[in-house]
């Protein structure tokens, strides 16, 4: 099965993950692109009606060549001009990239697009879909041959904490070094848990709410311990609010 992320490590020691696009998202992007090709074909067909008045034979010939060029050229042209994106990929925030993170070349784009007939076998992109599921890098046959991957750039919605973090005095801010340490030690996942707990607190029953915030506080205290004068008299929920205020503001 395919991994969800591909980790790129640069010689400078920078490591970052690229989220690989799964077969379903890619199929949806393909459906959008197919629809675009259909719309463009219809537009060409309408335009050719005028040419048909002069010569029906010539209009028919232009239609045949135009629809052929659209079906093969659409993906190649857009992925080349938009650095690995088509209309469908833009809408679904997908991008074709070189497998090693290098610059995408024209020949890679052509190979991955011209190998679609193989991926489309026997129907509904079954070969491509299976290859995508079974390949460790979620690649269809065309991607394997072209050394490309398709990555997903999900929209990152920052939590709307303004409602739960009123501009009150935060005793933790008096300790900038500890606050900075907290930012470094809290993982994105842990920060997300704190934010979600604050935003959904009204949905919890009172006992669970107390237990949850106590657990989060205990965990955060293990990461960074603020001096007693900063935490004295601060409830568990207020403690988590102070932490979120440090992390997200």
């Amino acid at each position: 099965m395919y991994a969800r992320h591909l980790t790129i490590q640069t010689p400078e020691g920078i490591v970052f993950p690229l989220r690989l696009a799964g077969p379903v998202t890619r199929f949806l992007a393909l459906a959008v692109d197919r629809a675009c090709v259909q719309i463009l074909s219809a537009a060409v067909s309408a335009a050719l009606r005028f040419l048909g008045v002069i010569s029906a034979d010539l209009a028919g010939a232009v239609w045949l060549v135009g629809s052929f060029a659209l079906s093969f050229g659409y993906g190649i042209a857009l992925e080349w001009l938009w650095q690995g994106q088509t209309v469908g990929k833009r809408l679904l925030r997908l991008q074709v990239m070189d497998e090693q993170g290098l610059r995408l070349t024209f020949s890679q784009i052509v190979v991955r697009n011209l190998l679609r007939p193989v991926d489309a076998l026997p129907a509904f992109y079954l070969v491509g879909g299976l290859a995508c599921l079974l390949s460790p890098r979620a690649q269809r046959v065309g991607d394997i041959a072209a050394n490309t991957i398709v990555v997903s750039h999900p929209r990152l919605a920052e939590p709307d904490l303004d409602q739960v973090l009123p501009d009150k005095y935060n005793s933790f801010r008096a300790y900038p070094v500890l606050a900075s340490r907290l930012r470094r030690r809290v993982s994105p996942r842990e920060a997300g848990v704190a934010a979600q707990a604050l935003m959904r607190r009204a949905l919890l029953n009172p006992e669970d709410r107390v237990r949850l915030f106590a657990a989060i506080r205990a965990h955060m205290q293990e990461l960074v311990r603020f001096p007693p004068e900063a935490t004295e008299g601060v409830s568990d929920e207020q403690y988590v609010r102070n932490v979120a205020d440090i992390l997200f503001r």
Binding site: I8, T10, P11, G13, I14, F16, L18, D98, G101, L102, R103, H153, L156, E158, R183, R184, R185, V186, S187, P188, R189, E190, A191, L247, F248
Partner: peptide
Amino acid sequence: LARLATFGAERETRTYLETLVARAYGETHE
């Protein structure tokens, strides 16, 4: 990016820098 990577909550800025570094990496190491 390396310095900011330790900040759990700075996802948006980190993702922006990752994209920049990835593109620049592709150009410099090609």
